[in-house]
């Protein structure tokens, strides 16, 4: 187990190095940093002096090492647009994105597993037919369309929920949260649903397919022959056996939810990291873009690591070396 975790950690570090190389190339070679920083009336000699001072004339690997060194300490430079440290900008907006992502991941997981199990156990019920048809819409409609549709129905026509922003937020130990106020929670509903819908249908269809597969397995038949209750069979024996692929997909999807919150955040003007990224792209705010790239890669690497460790807790067959055959 420990050896496995260490091995996976090393792999993760290699992945992060590769991504930071890409981020660095973007950071350093998309446009001239000096050009971005100084006015037109600066003399060439001064520019050269500045280059030297900032280390831009150093060999490639030295610059890369400096970049990685700074990145490890959470230093990604200063935003061109806002003249503030990039790290602080991202940290300020991170709570908004994480709250949105976690809320929608929870919605997707809870309803996805529930409907997946239901549709697998009752394949002939009319509810199953309805859910399966609706789920097609969930997979195929683009996020922005769903978002705009929800805004139109619930914010414009019915006027029940706000159409943009986070509502009132409060600071709790450096974390700006919208979960503690009514307007914050109300603002969260529409974007969270929008963002969750794709993952929800994906998880639902996956759970359904896996359940149908597992319910045919011999050990389920044997569990029935042992006289266990339906509840114990369906949830204790069948559902647990569907979990390995479900954890994989859910984990990867949580990464995607954070990464692709960009669209939802834009539609709902959600003040998160995604909308920060979109604004930075518009003005070629390279340090922010590079940092965002690193940040998303980091999220994926961490989630993958957690998913791999979760496999171990779910499936005893993977705990090699601990058992004798």
């Amino acid at each position: 187990m420990t050896a496995f975790v260490i091995r996976r950690l090393l792999q993760s570090i290699i992945v992060m190095l590769a991504v930071s190389l890409v981020a660095f190339v973007v950071f350093r070679y998309v446009g001239d940093p000096i050009e971005s920083m100084v006015g037109q009336d600066m003399r060439l000699a001064d520019r050269e002096a500045m280059r030297d001072r900032l280390g831009l004339n150093d060999p490639f690997y030295v610059q890369f090492a400096t970049f990685v060194g700074n990145a490890v300490q959470g230093n990604f430079g200063i935003s061109y647009r806002l003249q503030e440290p990039v790290t602080r900008l991202i940290m300020e907006r991170l709570p908004a994105t994480i709250e949105l992502a976690v809320a929608s991941a929870l919605i997707a997981l809870i309803f996805g597993v529930f409907f997946g199990v239901y549709t697998a156990l009752k394949p002939k019920s009319p509810i199953t037919a309805t859910v399966m048809t609706l789920s097609l819409a969930g997979v195929s409609l683009p996020t922005f369309l769903i978002g705009i549709g929800l805004i139109y129905i619930f914010a414009v026509e019915l006027g029940w929920l706000p159409s943009f922003g986070r509502g009132t937020t409060v600071m709790v130990g450096g974390w700006r949260t919208g979960l503690l106020t009514e307007s914050g929670l109300r603002s969260l509903i529409l974007p969270a649903i929008t963002l969750s819908l794709f993952q929800l249908t994906l998880i639902m269809r996956l759970v359904r397919a896996e359940m149908l597969e597992v319910l045919r397995a011999d050990y389920i038949r044997f569990a029935r022959a042992r006289g266990l209750t339906d509840r114990a069979i369906n949830f204790g024996h069948a559902l647990k056996n569907t979990l390995v692929p479900v954890i994989t997909i859910t984990g990867l999807q949580l990464g995607s939810v954070i990464a692709f919150a960009i669209v939802t955040e834009t539609v709902f003007q959600w003040p998160g990291v995604g909308s920060l990224f979109i604004q930075s792209v518009q003005v070629v705010d390279v340090p922010v873009m590079a940092a965002y790239l690193m940040f998303i890669a980091f999220v994926f690497v961490v989630i993958n690591l957690i998913v791999d460790i979760l496999y171990y807790t779910v499936d005893p067959r993977l705990r090699v070396g601990t058992g004798k055959r």
Binding site: Y219, R221, A225, R226, G227, N241, D315
Partner: peptide, 25 residues
Amino acid sequence: LRRYRGKRIGMVFQDPLTSLNPLYT
């Protein structure tokens, strides 16, 4: 029906490799 399965009538299936749930001791 469920109450007498396993209690009054036990069953042994053909393939022991797949009769047991792999995730439980």
